[in-house]
Simulated assay, not measured.
Amino acid sequence: MTTAPEAVRVRTDPDPYEQYLISQAIRVGDLVYLSGQAAVDSHGNIVGAGDFDAQAAQVFANLKAVLEAAGSSMDRIVKVTIYLTDMANFGRIMELRAQHFSKPYPADTIVEVKALALPEFKIEIEAIGLVGGTIRDT
Rank of each mutant, 00 (worst) to 15 (best):
P16R: 03
K122Q: 15
A98Y: 05
V32I: 03
V10I: 13
S73Q: 05
Q24H: 03
L63C: 05
D13M: 08
R97G: 11
R11A: 15
D41Y: 06
I93W: 12
Q37R: 09
K79C: 13
D108R: 13
A117M: 15
I46H: 08
T12L: 01
S73K: 03
L21H: 12
R76C: 12
R97I: 14
S102W: 03
G132D: 10
S102E: 10
R11E: 15
K114R: 05
D30V: 01
R9K: 08
M94N: 15
I22N: 06
I93D: 03
F52C: 00
D108Y: 11
R136I: 07
G132V: 00
R27W: 00
T2E: 13
M74T: 12
I46F: 13
T134K: 10
A54H: 03
T3K: 15
T12P: 06
Q37C: 05
A7R: 07
S73R: 07
V10R: 03
V66E: 02
G132T: 09
A88E: 11
D51E: 14
L34K: 07
N45R: 04
K114M: 13
V32S: 04
F60G: 01
Q99H: 13
F90K: 12
I125Y: 09
F101G: 07
V78R: 13
L67C: 04
N89F: 10
R9F: 04
P119S: 15
A117R: 10
N45A: 12
I46N: 11
A65C: 05
A107F: 10
A39N: 11
R27N: 04
R27G: 02
Y83S: 14
G29L: 00
R136Q: 14
A57P: 00
T109I: 11
E120V: 14
M1P: 09
I123V: 15
G132P: 01
